[in-house]
């Protein structure tokens, strides 16, 4: 009974027992990752009084949707911020994919004469930076894009790490022979890039796209530096500025005295803060499976072939 499957599959996939062990490991891991999130979810639906009296709890004494009401009611800031974040993420990811894939492909080609030069061009910025003030100068003065959506998109578009990762994907999954034969068939370099090489590295592109999406989705630094109108405020910054302010007020409590307490009283309450965490994370979690299919596809392919 246990060996009802064909010998071919038997070697291809693992046995039942190793599978059980793996499942146990992954359940434990998944559990450790999901617990904090449930914790956050529970705080976001706790009543403020119960937080004040009993602190953070897994099962709050009293439930309340006040946090969500606070975040959603009164203005369309939340919707605006969703739109800003989504726009920035989409445009930035597409732009980034273009910059990264073109550069990575050129570097992946062993016969590219200026390979070394462009590699060094990409390595140095990973290490040396001019600091925040100098970057600010470029964006706000030189490019003059402060308080525009470009200030959220452009500074993060290129990324050397992602570029090198993609480069190594290309080197390992696109054999030189394929490029060579395409060229002999008379395909132009552009055609080779778009029609031959790119389709072969879809999992790699999906990885890079996912990283870009996450980077843009979670970014708040650029918003802090460059954005001054509410219309361009991304979602993450709504949350981070509350968090930053809470830690600042806690750190400076001694120096600020009563004024600190008054200032803290004006900040959104814990439940509202956690509500923002939930509201800003859930959409991106739904976006994840979209990318996921490119990572899991490969191994299903093997099964289909049989």
């Amino acid at each position: 009974m246990a060996r009802a499957i064909s010998p071919m599959q038997d070697i291809h996939s693992i046995g039942k027992n190793p599978n059980r062990i793996l499942n146990v490991i992954f359940i434990a891991l998944a559990f450790s990752c999901i617990i904090p999130f449930i914790f956050i979810l529970m705080i976001s639906i706790s009543s403020e009084d119960s937080i004040k009296e009993f602190g953070y709890q897994f099962i709050p004494q009293a439930f309340s949707l006040e946090g969500y009401k606070y975040v959603i009611s009164g203005s369309d800031q939340l919707m605006t911020s969703y739109m800003v974040t989504i726009t920035v993420t989409i445009l930035g990811t597409l732009g980034g994919l273009f910059l990264i894939s073109t550069y990575a492909y050129a570097l992946s080609r062993r016969d590219f004469a200026y390979k070394r030069f462009f590699t060094v061009i990409a390595v140095i910025p990973m290490l040396f930076g001019g600091g925040m003030v100098a970057n600010y100068m470029i964006v706000s003065r030189f490019l003059d894009i402060k308080d525009t959506i470009f200030a959220l998109i452009l500074p993060m578009m290129m990324n050397s790490t992602y570029m090198f990762v993609l480069k190594s994907f290309i080197t390992s999954s696109v054999p030189d022979a394929i490029v060579e034969s395409a060229r002999i068939d008379g395909a132009s370099e552009w055609r080779i890039f778009f029609r031959v090489v790119m389709p072969m590295v879809v999992p790699g592109l999906a990885t890079i796209a996912l990283f870009l999406v996450l980077g843009y989705w979670n970014d708040w630094m650029n918003a802090m530096l460059y954005i001054e109108t509410d219309k361009l405020m991304p979602l993450q910054y709504l949350l981070i500025r509350i968090e930053n302010s809470m830690s600042f007020l806690a750190d400076n409590a001694a120096q600020m005295g009563v004024t600190g307490i008054e200032a803290a009283a004006n900040l959104p309450k814990d439940s509202a803060k956690m509500a923002i965490v939930v509201l800003s994370t859930v959409p991106i979690l739904f976006a994840y499976p979209f990318f996921q299919k490119y990572f899991v596809k490969g191994l299903n392919l093997g099964a289909v072939k049989e």
Binding site: G129, G130, M157
Partner: peptide, 18 residues
């Protein structure tokens, strides 16, 4: 390589004066 190189010059090399 040009599009990304332009990006590098503006967003990475110019600020390096800092």
């Amino acid at each position: 390589t040009i599009p990304a190189t332009i990006w590098y010059v503006i967003f990475a090399y110019l600020p390096m004066i800092g």
